[in-house]
Nucleic acid binder design. Sequence first.
DNA 1: CGAAGCGTTGACGCGGATCAAAGGCAGTGG
DNA 2: CCACTGCCTTTGATCCGCGTCAACGCTTCG
Lengths: 238, 238
Amino acid sequence: MMIATAAGTGAAKVDSAAAVHPAETLESRILGVDGNDREGGLRVPGRVRHFLRDRQIYTEGDDADCIFKVEMGVVRTYKFLRDGRRQVYAFHGPGSMFGLEIGKAYGLSAAAASDCDVISYGRRHLERLAVHDERLALLLYSTVLCSLARAQQHSLSLGQRSAIEKLAIFLMSCTELPIVGADILLAMSRNDIADHLGLTIETVSRTFADLVARAFIELKGARHICLVDVAGLRELCA
Amino acid sequence: MMIATAAGTGAAKVDSAAAVHPAETLESRILGVDGNDREGGLRVPGRVRHFLRDRQIYTEGDDADCIFKVEMGVVRTYKFLRDGRRQVYAFHGPGSMFGLEIGKAYGLSAAAASDCDVISYGRRHLERLAVHDERLALLLYSTVLCSLARAQQHSLSLGQRSAIEKLAIFLMSCTELPIVGADILLAMSRNDIADHLGLTIETVSRTFADLVARAFIELKGARHICLVDVAGLRELCA
DNA sequence: CGAAGCGTTGACGCGGATCAAAGGCAGTGG
DNA sequence: CCACTGCCTTTGATCCGCGTCAACGCTTCG
């Protein structure tokens, strides 16, 4: 998932296209290796909508009549507890679909983490089409399975990892391309990151400083991060 | 999900059958309210297999050629980190399906949390059938969506909740029937609970003691728990 | 009766939360 | 172009929930 814009890609894209994913199967091939549909495998017309940063896309409890795909920018899905605690479940970058539900209503809320373009598809329409369109059915099924795999990976972080490990994993997930020494521009605030990783903004900030002190990364700006020691970061994630 | 045997059900089952779920839709109706297929909606022959407690059902990385449904007992899915930390993702009780994957290999391991009977279905077979069997396709899709919703609920616990809240939520999820004052018999060990909630066994034990001290529950045995104040427990989960 | 597991309880320490205050940095107006 | 304002981020000091280490009780089984 590209939840950050990679500054200075060029060669990297070639690498990633050439790489063959070991778990390549019928299902995974319909989507990208990262489970995103960046090539437009969803051949159904949808409505493009633009959202400014922090604008609500839908709210927990709303009628779940649309399924969305990110075209540009980053979307966060989240939920609030009564006392104000917030869990950010996921960040969705270009090609990533969200809003797939089993019940009548959305179980989570979604908002723009940065300015973004989103395509919305009528849920009933898609579901009706999927009955006779094997490819579409497979795409929806794969999308949900990918989300599930991501959610599980995230649970592992939340349940077992220390702050520095959580942040290393988060940074690695921001690239998901094997770029060494590449810069990444985070689309989301410290607050979003903290609520995603089950930390506070202070801890996130301190842990970034720690990663800098240990020469894993460089901070060229609050949201501009340079991965200096990718192998070391990967080691933290092991 | 029935991840514990309700001691003294009888009347409770009638209650749950009579209750109408608010979010009832096409997808949710094919499975139970809890996302389980206890009524045998999966009308495909499978192979029954028996597993003793702690026996491995499959291991992360194995060829994912089977999909499973719990017939009796409880199964846990989990993953180990190199240093021995373990995350237990979910407990699967009767009717619950697991082992649905997107890639070639299982992404998690599964083992029997208690002695159990499990039905295995050939994955390729099911997937081929699903192309022409709308109902089966819907069942698989719903199953994954339910797992995703559960995983998200679990992330919320892991990321934002305190130990006592986590345990209250866990206990409530063990019944998922609106029984007041009902006893539950936990199928899993303190170790399993701890690794599920991202705590240590000592903290789980102390927190149980705390719940007793605050008169939310009674411990009639290490695994025999009586919910004394269900409203209070629900309040903890809010 | 002894041994091995599991669960409980106690003492203590640490990682991350909380509280507080001081920088950046962008947008606005003079 | 610079000062002002408000927000986001960083940094410091302190606190506390939960982890760690250790010992002990209970149950099961040979």
